[in-house]
Nucleic acid binder design. Structure first.
Lengths: 214, 214, 214, 214
DNA sequence: TATGAATGAGTATTCATTCAT
DNA sequence: GATGAATGAATACTCATTCAT
């Protein structure tokens, strides 16, 4: 549970905590079903509380969407990297692991992730928040690329910042297409292929087994 | 002017044609300013016609947005490739040319392109239409990759369909980030870098000059 | 009809003018009945139009209240004095005429005048507007007193500004009490008495007939 | 402390008395800040008690406003006159003393007095109560005028009841304007001027020093 | 007594769409 | 074709008041 959530919850009685929780759960379901057009009335109804009760805990749809998103934010944009910087020769493994985690998380949250992508059209405020988190991750990628280049393990012609944006976008967009349309993709193949493309793009050596994967 | 537009226009008197045109122009401006939340009243006002006149020409906001989008659809997803399949040894040049065109077009239409991306959250019907067009382009990319592979000019370990989705997404997402946020990118560098990543990813040979570009 | 009203009406079709008028009339009735707590729904209903139609003509309750008040504003705080400055020896007659006009107008508009007085508690914006108009009248009174003093026709110990505020307030408050509570007052007596008090206060000579009026 | 307050307080435990007191204090502040639109939540919060606690002591906003007003009621409309009827020849001194007290009290309670005036627009019940108190004072004034007239010390042409209403209103309205708008008045001058006007109006002799006061 | 969560009636407001002229 | 007035469904939000603990 994210810190923000803990904060919001701190001053509540157990009963209040239960109600708030029910609202967040309900909101998750309703957002998944109706997108951001979800009606506050429906959320309250789903949670089994009166209309006005919603406003005891949240000031707006944005705010509860944020609460629903807390978990995702932490999962996709952790405060700190989930793994230590890998030795250059493990670069491929790190890429693959990151991609696998990303795709799995993305698919697990499915409709909600899609909502994130479409947020700017609908709630600029919220999407700014997501953008910030995203920027941090792009920056981490950028630094990782620079490290590989220093170690002579990546194409020096590549501009780390441009590449971080482009490759991050590649995986993100792939996942988005997968979830939002009904493309037929296979998880393992997707991980292998995206990692191969990513590694190739940077000219990071790809271990032999992958090269035969299809 | 696209065929659909021509159709819609055919049965109108000259005066009607003018009014319809004014509405589409106005809509473009207003959509760019307000996003898809634009109000029909504003569009009509901008076009200098009465509110009700809108409905003489369009049945809904979706419909006029579609009309506004016709031009873009044609530009981004032309009915037929704009260039013939290049000889394998010109692969890099083709990649670069495609990317440059894409980025230039995307930037030219700026806010409107962003609207396209965010459409699904807001008008599923329309976005289906865009998706279809997109799919055609992805398929063309897929076949191009297959051709390169047959010619021994691209990494055979790459799955053409996955790669077509991924690399198309890469450029699309990069352009989106560029336009929707205020990232500082340089057009030439962006073209060079994205093309380098794309070519690298497929292990398509990159001519020497690029390799020194930064 | 005040200029503001004419303006608002200028761009409307006859039908629109009729509807707008119906709304203002309805509002007057409803405000008189319910005070400023009147509901917009009621006003629309009273005017025999749909709820939303209200918003075709007015943006808020304040705005229609202002429209309702236009006529009163002009009556109580005319852009220019309704009479020329009287010769000093007619001072009493002028006082009496002004008071009679004021009391008659106030009583004619009854409940609506009372609403004006209570406006500050309920809509500071509107009341500021009324205050401004009131200030202009107070200033006119002040200058009239100064004129009388120069002519040696009024007590020189009186401070014209303080007196203008005080005596204007006296008549206003008297009228307010008369209308808002059910005090039993007689119009002629009220005019005579207020004028006597006013004249006495300034030591303006009071013609003999008045002195016997009761 | 007024009798009503004492009553309400009698049956409470010391702790209850403290809480009730905190609520009344808080209400005074909040009413002064927000007018009668003050929210019960805010009052409770200000008093440092839970929302629901309010209802342990008061049934409604009106009721606590009344409690807040007790002190003022007593100050402005004392159960008995604060001074004995003055000898006719001290009439002016009595007028001046009353006016000074009134203006000082009014200004001391400032925003709250203004609230009183605007009460009818907002809570007819309460304002009826205030009206009653006011009526008692007007009646006292009326009888004082009659006394002066019997003693030959005031203009016999003046109708005591009309004058009591008018002159009371004059001072009240002057004070209201002073407090609610930002008129620049000076206390001593105001007292002198209002007393002068009042005395003049009744043709009560004004001692010489006043006549030179400005 | 105190708490604070829950309630829900009440009201304003927006805007796509219809339709008489 | 054009007009612009009229419509009314849809929904958000506030806050006094109740009540279980």
């Amino acid at each position: 549970m994210s810190s923000t959530d803990a904060e919001a919850t701190a001053s509540l009685t157990p009963r209040g905590r239960r109600t708030r929780h029910a609202l967040v759960d309900a909101a998750k379901e309703v957002f998944e079903r109706d997108g951001f057009a979800a009606r506050i009335t429906d959320i309250a109804e789903h949670a089994g509380v009166a209309h006005g009760t919603f406003y005891t805990y949240f000031e707006s749809k944005e705010e509860i969407f944020l609460a629903v998103s807390q978990e995702l934010l932490e999962e996709f944009f952790p405060g700190r990297p989930r793994t230590d910087a890998p030795a250059p020769r493990d670069a491929y493994a790190a890429i693959e692991s990151t991609n696998r985690q990303y795709l799995e998380s993305y698919r697990r949250h499915g409709r909600l992730m899609v909502l994130w992508e479409e947020m700017p059209g609908v709630s600029p405020g919220l999407s700014g928040l997501i953008d910030d988190a995203r920027a941090a991750v792009v920056d981490r990628t950028r630094r990782a690329i620079l490290r590989l280049q220093s170690a002579g393990a990546a194409d020096p012609a590549v501009d780390a910042r441009y590449a971080a944006h482009a490759l991050g976008g590649m995986v993100n967009r792939f996942a988005y297409g997968w979830v939002s349309r009904d493309e037929e993709f296979d998880l393992d193949t997707a991980v292998t292929q995206l990692s191969l493309l990513w590694a190739n793009a940077l000219r990071v050596p790809v271990p032999v087994p992958q090269r035969r994967s299809r």
